[in-house]
Amino acid sequence: MSNNEQTNSHSHFPWSHLIGFGLSIFLTLLALWVGFASDFSLRTIMIIVVILALIQAAIQLLMFMHITESDSSRIQVGTILYAVFIAVAVVAGTIWVMSFGMHNMNM
């Protein structure tokens, strides 16, 4: 069974987990800085922090969850990529579809 990088890493120190953890903390703190301490507009802030979130998610998928190990890595990665496509379609689609004339309403 093919899991090259993974077979070696398990008698050694769990580097990928430590790096993943460190990067996640860093990205979280970065997002906080962008949100609270920078002077970008709300729109810019949200674009940046969503991108940071996607990066952190990808890091955790790779480094914590080892999505690319195992014989079925292509199916696993393919599934998650398709799921991301669906997530974007559902979230962006819903926001767009529901965005008509709502700024005028007093809710």
Binding site: F85, I86, A89, G93, V97, M98, F100, G101
Partner: peptide
């Protein structure tokens, strides 16, 4: 299969989502 997730509003064209949508 891919496109099937990108057509849904055609079930409610008349509900007021607007011209662009």
């Amino acid at each position: 299969a891919g496109l099937s997730f990108l057509v849904w509003v055609h079930h409610f064209f008349t509900m007021g989502a607007g011209g662009a949508v």
